[in-house]
């Protein structure tokens, strides 16, 4: 028989305190994450009438409906496009800016630029969207005005099927790179200066120092930022909604936009829930792959 573990009173008190401290976030998780997820899974097998709250069990019908619909496939393709490019763009730009601010710029200027780069993360997207639309308009837009000035034909930033996603990408990176920069910067500032100086003495060039010393040492932060950006991009909504609203046609529509349309325009909660479940699975798979892959390149000191 196994002997019962004995706790001394101070350990017990500590344990109690630990539970007490976790209760608020646990309750929050339960009420705002866990229960809604269960509810969404249940609804995804039902036809749900929002007006009467009457439900009918329909089995896999909702899943079949969305998996055979060409619009969901377009939205899925767009979402993956955003995920790769927004995540790479946001993390990459964040890293470049962080190194700029940390290493390249003189210290006095760096505070100023850090604020400038972070500023877009603080403003409400809805307000700046009006300005971005003015930039992107085909016939009265600022960007096309300068393009035509240098002899390039007008581009339908918001109105061509090819460019609508690129416009969203530009807005999304502008909006989110500041946050990535700030988080990576925190990692860079923890890097031991001595190691960098040692590399310098050994004759490593600036680029080699960056690639072989700084990136590996800041890799836990870069990894965290990458995960954040990938999951964020898989759920991309706001940047699209304020700029193109998914159009023209479905050319810039993401899965979350389609979920919102199914749920709040068609009032088809069943299909919206089924799509949400599929998105949840997709996010889980991608995050799992990232964690597995991270063992190869993330160094914890």
């Amino acid at each position: 028989m196994q002997k019962k573990k004995k706790w001394n009173p101070s350990k017990k008190r500590e344990l109690r305190a630990a539970y007490l401290f976790t209760i608020p976030s646990f309750v929050g998780f339960l009420v705002f994450v866990f229960i809604p997820i269960i509810w969404v899974i249940i609804i995804s097998f039902q036809k749900y009438n929002v007006f009467t709250t009457a439900t009918t069990f329909v089995g896999w019908d909702n899943y079949r409906q969305i998996l055979t619909n060409s619009r969901s496939l377009v939205a899925l393709k767009n979402t993956l496009w955003y995920t790769v490019l927004c995540a790479l763009g946001n993390t990459g730009m964040g890293l470049i800016l962080a190194v700029l601010v940390d290493d390249v710029l003189p210290h006095k200027l760096s505070v100023f630029f850090r604020s400038i780069y972070f500023f877009p993360s603080l403003v409400g997207l809805t307000f700046v969207a009006i300005i971005w639309q003015a930039f992107f308009q085909t016939d009265a837009g600022v960007i096309n005005y300068y393009l035509t000035r240098i002899g390039i034909a007008k581009i339908g930033w918001l109105s061509s099927q090819t460019f609508s996603k690129i416009s969203v990408l530009i807005l999304d990176i502008w909006k989110n790179m500041g946050m990535s920069m700030l988080l990576i910067l925190a990692g860079l500032q923890n890097v031991d200066r001595g190691i960098i100086e040692a590399a310098e003495i050994d004759g490593a060039s600036a680029f080699q120092r960056f690639l072989k010393v700084i990136i590996p040492l800041a890799s836990p932060q870069i990894f965290f930022v990458m995960i954040m950006n990938v999951t964020g991009a898989l759920r991309i909504y706001e940047s699209i909604s304020v700029l193109t609203n998914g159009g023209p046609g479905d050319s810039s529509r993401s899965l979350v936009m389609l979920i919102a349309e199914k749920g709040f325009t068609s009032f088809d909660y069943g299909a919206a829930s089924a799509l949400s479940v599929l998105l949840l699975i997709l996010i889980s798979i991608v995050t799992f792959i990232q964690f597995v892959g991270s063992r190869k390149w993330v160094h914890y000191e």
Partner: peptide, 22 residues
């Protein structure tokens, strides 16, 4: 009765026409 759907479907089609996709 299905106003939300008809609005979305028609406007999507108009965008497809104006952008030259269809």
């Amino acid at each position: 009765t299905y106003f939300g759907d008809i609005e979305q479907s028609l406007l999507r089609a108009m965008e497809e026409v104006f952008s030259g996709a269809k």
